[in-house]
């Protein structure tokens, strides 16, 4: 590539700062531009400023969400594990200095008088300069495939949450270990989360079963640590969920006693 080509290419990429700030790039272009930001101080500064401007356009659109949405989100939160903060050394290593710039983080000023949420654009965005960079931090901290998997799972979770008959329940034992379930009978889907059940011996997994009053337990899948398990095909005649410890890879039928069992009646099954 000649020097001229490279300059033209740089010029071309610079001009993508505004479309980037407006989320108006195609995915491939977005990635290419973000890579370019690593080596282009000018672009990073411009993106910072333009992104502040773009966020201002959001302030004017607030609208009250449907009340049922609150129930669903809060129910989901009860059974959804959180991601841990990125390790500090990784953060430093993967945050190019120019993204933050040499400017220190803006000092936060407490409101001296009551003020409405969306009015003071200037103060609102003083600290927003680094929003884009925050998103980089999230993205840089994880491998892309991991992100994709999490996004796909979030979508599946959102689908269960969106059902009109979604209900949630949790069960906690004396040791503080808990199982949480969000389920929709109409969809036959459920999101199941285990927490506190770690310390599994090597070569073993937690397997989830659907129990029927008559008939064999049916496997709903294997847990991967504390990641929620999204399952489908729950029929209305099922009475409970059970979790057993099985050899890696899972079993066709439970080979041990359940470590936890949860009745499905309160979730609307068997009604």
């Amino acid at each position: 590539m000649s020097v001229l080509d490279r300059l033209l290419r740089r010029e071309d990429l610079h001009s993508l700062a505004a479309p980037y700030a407006l989320d108006a790039l195609e995915p491939a272009e977005r990635l290419r531009f973000e890579r370019h930001l690593d080596g282009c101080e000018l672009c990073a500064a411009e993106v910072r400023a333009l992104s502040e401007d773009a966020v201002r356009l959001a302030w004017s659109t607030a609208a009250p969400p449907p009340t049922a949405m609150r129930d669903r989100v809060l129910a989901a939160v009860r059974t959804t594990p959180q991601m841990s903060a990125p390790e500090p050394e990784r953060t430093t290593a993967q945050l190019p200095p120019h993204v933050w710039g040499t400017r220190p983080p803006p000092a936060r000023v407490r409101a001296s008088r009551p003020r409405p949420l969306f009015v003071p654009f200037a103060t609102a965005t003083a600290a927003a300069a680094l929003v884009v960079a925050s998103l980089f931090a999230v993205q840089a901290g994880q491998a892309q495939d991991r992100l994709d998997a999490e996004r796909a799972q979030s979508r599946e979770i959102a689908r269960v949450l969106a059902a009109p008959d979604t209900r949630a329940t949790t069960d906690r034992d004396a040791q503080g270990r808990s199982i949480g379930v969000i389920a929709s009978v109409s969809q036959g889907r459920a999101i199941v989360t285990l927490s506190g059940y770690d310390g599994l011996a090597g070569g073993h997994v937690h397997q989830l079963w659907l129990m029927h009053p008559s008939g064999q337990p049916r496997s709903l899948g294997l847990f991967d640590g504390d990641t929620p398990l999204v399952t489908s095909g729950l029929d209305n005649s099922a009475t409970s969920l059970a979790v057993t410890v099985e050899p890696a890879g899972g079993s066709a039928q439970p080979t041990t006693q359940p470590i936890v069992q949860l009745a499905l009646k309160s979730l609307g099954f068997g009604e």
């Binding site: 989100v73 939160v77 959804t80 959180q82 991601m83 931090a137 901290g141 999490e150 979030s154 959102a158």
Partner: peptide, 9 residues
């Protein structure tokens, strides 16, 4: 829900 999950970030 993503806010809940990734608040630590």
């Amino acid at each position: 829900l993503e806010l809940w999950r990734s608040a630590a970030r």
